[in-house]
Structures are given as structure tokens and as C-alpha cells.
Write a protein that binds this DNA or RNA. Structure first.
Lengths: 206, 206
DNA sequence: GTGCCTAGCTAATGCTAGTTAGAAAATAGG
DNA sequence: CCTATTTTCTAACTAGCATTAGCTAGGCAC
């Protein structure tokens, strides 16, 4: 009974391990070179395998992409949601924004390459993959939209502010960071801080 | 004499026309599908040619990419510069920012596909092309940086504002717009207006 | 009409990438 | 250790892509 349970766990683990390694490597390569310029041979080599072996674990290169995209957005969404839930009920919307932004940047810069790979390649993914992926993306979008709406309802965002513009501006800032961020240059905390200050206080004279 | 001048003009025009058509088509296709998923056959078909014929006008697919990238950033830079130069000397830095932003969005959404193709594919361009391209990009970046510095020196941007963060936030917002902008949804003018207001006034209560 | 130049076509080339099927090696369990 | 299963390797295949070299047709000048 016990040894049987151990057998099942071990048998699962090698392929689970290899599968994860492949995904990790793919995420890193997609982020760095994009989907099309990354070959299966590249990915396989990164995990000490040959390209044909990858097919034991995945049906196709496209399936790898789908999973990388999915993991990327879900892990970010989860991190953002969790960090907000961990706040006290009394937290301001400004603080929630900062924390959410922080979690997003943490996902982008600290939790592996999945989100950055996602941001880098989703816009050019094969059409059917893009169409599938856009759904979860909209959910994430709505989550942020909802936050802005509540902040405005609570008076923390002025009523004259166009929330749609705000949302798009912020998403741009959040996501374009992959193009310029260099680890060590700026901590995720300070980045989220500064963006929050700029957005809530504005840069103009008081 | 007259017929000779006409000959030269006509002979130049056909290849100049075809060449431009190829670039226009390439810009559109790169924007839509990315560089790698766009084939020479796609580009050729879009201008009513066959793939082999494109080599009469360009040495390689990469050369087409280089030119699309270059035209994209240069046209934006030029538009921004021109629009600022057309302002009176007394214009505020806030107004200059708005006008520059407006010009950038106009380049992005109204002057063909070059800038949007650029933004979409430069991050995944072949390394030697990327390295070459990044130079002009830095010049554009510096132009904006310079604007913020002067605005801060003039007191129009508060001294406590981290200009580096501001710059990166704004670039993100400016450039990520390719991911969501749908013509007709919002005019370029109103977009630049709204972003300027959010950034200068902030969204928080006064 | 002839000759030259321009602009595009065509068939072919060479290479690469994703993928497959069978063999071999590694792992796991008794 | 042995056996069964899992995991990886390998050689090959096919399709597609960028590119090339030679040809052709049209336009223009003489």
C-alpha cells in the first residue's frame, strides 16, 4: 500500500519534472526570442533533450505556447488577487491599486518568465491561440476595471476621470515594462510606489 | 530634352511606386502577423507580385524589416518634433506634452502601419537588426526625457517626481496602445487629452 | 524595326523547422 | 536482479520558406 503509493508518486514525478522543465525553458526562450524564432531544438537543448523527445510530453509546439501563455496570465491574476485579499477590509483603493500593481510587477520580474513571455508573444500568437487566450485576458482586465470603478465610487478616484483611459494607460505602463526593465535597476516595490504616486497625485504642481 | 526628362521621371516612378507598395504592405502584415509569420509570398501577393520579384527591389526580407522599422520610428519622431516646433514659444510644457503625445498617437493610428509594425516587432527582430535599430530609438527616448527635464526645471512637473519612472510609464502607455486601439472608438485628440490630464492632475481627490 | 533597360515571373535550390515511428536507454517496482 | 513501463534518442520525412539565376514582356529611344 505504502510502497505502491510511493511508486505512483515517483513515476509521476519524472515526467512531471521534465514537463515543467520544458515549459520553464520555453517560457524563457519565448520571452527572449519570441515564439517563432524559438525552435523545438532550442527548447529541448535547454533541458538536455532532443527535439523529438518533447513530443512525449506535448502534442505540439503550439500546445507548449498555449500552456506558457495560460500559466503566465493565470499566475499574475492569482498573485494580484491573493495580494488584494490579504489586505485588511479597511485598505484604501489607492493602497489596493499599489499592491495589485506590485503583484503584477512581481509576476513579471520575479516569478519566472511566464508572464513576460506572455506579454511578449501573445499579440503575435497563431490566431486560434490568440482567440482562445484573449478570454482569460479579458477577465484580468475586468478585475482591474472593477477596482477602478469601486475606487471612483468611493471617491478615491475623482468622478471626472475617464476610467477607460486610466485603465488603458495603466495596462500600457504595466505591460510595456518588459521592454525596459533590468533587474537590479529598480525594485518592484519602488516601481509600484512611483507609478501609484504619479497616477494618483499627478506630476503637475499642487 | 523634354521627352528625356519625362523618361527619367517615369522610369524612376514605377520602381519607386512598387518599392513603396511593398513597404506599405510589409508594414501592414508585420503589424498584423509579426515578422516571422509574414512570408515574402504574403507581401508579394499583397501587391500583386510573386515572391521572387521582391528581390528586384530589396536584397532580403531583413532589409524590408529594417526599412519598416526605420520609417516607423523616424516618421513618429518627425511628427512629434514638427508639432512641437509649430507651437508658440510661450506654450506650456504641459501643452507641449499633450501635443507630442497627440503626434505620437497620430503616427500610430493614422499615418499608415509603420510605427505600429515597429512597436509590434522590434522587440523580436533578429538581434543585429535590433541592435542597429535601438540607436534611433534612444534618440527618440532622449527627446522625451529632455522635455520632462525642462518641464521639471520650469516647475510644471514637481521636483519630487521621479522622471525616469514617469518616462517609462508614459512610453508604456504610448506604445501599448497598439494592443487595444480600435479606430473610431476614441479620437487621437481625446486620447492625448485624457492621458495628459491623468498624468498632470492625477486621478486622486483634490 | 531593333536594341537596351526595367520590372516581374518562374522553376529550382538549399535549408530549416516541426513532426513521426520505431529503437534504445533509463527508471521503477517486486 | 529481472521485468515492465516510462522516457528519451534517432533517423527520416515533409512542408514551407528565403533566395537565386535565367527568362520574358513591355516600354522607350534611336
Amino acid at each position: 500500500m505504502k510502497s505502491s503509493a510511493k511508486t505512483a508518486a515517483n513515476a509521476e514525478r519524472k515526467s512531471v519534472v521534465s514537463r515543467r522543465e520544458i515549459l520553464d525553458a520555453a517560457a524563457g526562450l519565448f520571452r527572449m526570442k519570441g515564439y517563432y524564432a524559438t525552435t523545438l531544438r532550442d527548447i529541448a537543448a535547454a533541458v538536455g533533450m532532443k527535439a523529438g523527445s518533447v513530443y512525449y510530453h506535448f502534442d505540439s509546439k503550439e500546445q507548449i505556447l498555449e500552456e506558457v501563455l495560460d500559466i503566465g496570465i493565470r499566475s499574475a491574476f492569482e498573485a494580484v488577487r491573493k495580494s488584494i485579499e490579504a489586505l485588511p477590509e479597511t485598505a484604501t483603493w489607492r493602497e489596493r491599486f499599489r499592491v495589485a500593481l506590485n503583484a503584477h510587477f512581481a509576476s513579471l520580474f520575479q516569478l519566472g518568465d511566464y508572464l513576460s513571455a506572455n506579454l511578449r508573444v501573445f499579440g503575435q500568437a497563431p490566431p486560434h491561440i490568440y482567440e482562445q487566450h484573449i478570454r482569460i485576458r479579458r477577465e484580468y482586465d475586468d478585475y482591474w476595471r472593477n477596482m477602478y470603478e469601486k475606487a471612483q465610487a468611493a471617491g478615491e478616484i475623482r468622478s471626472d476621470v475617464n476610467l477607460s483611459a486610466l485603465r488603458l494607460l495603466v495596462f500600457g505602463a504595466m505591460n510595456w515594462a518588459i521592454e525596459w526593465y533590468k533587474p537590479g535597476k529598480k525594485t518592484v516595490d519602488s516601481l509600484a510606489d512611483e507609478y501609484t504616486r504619479i497616477l494618483f497625485d499627478g506630476v503637475g504642481p499642487r
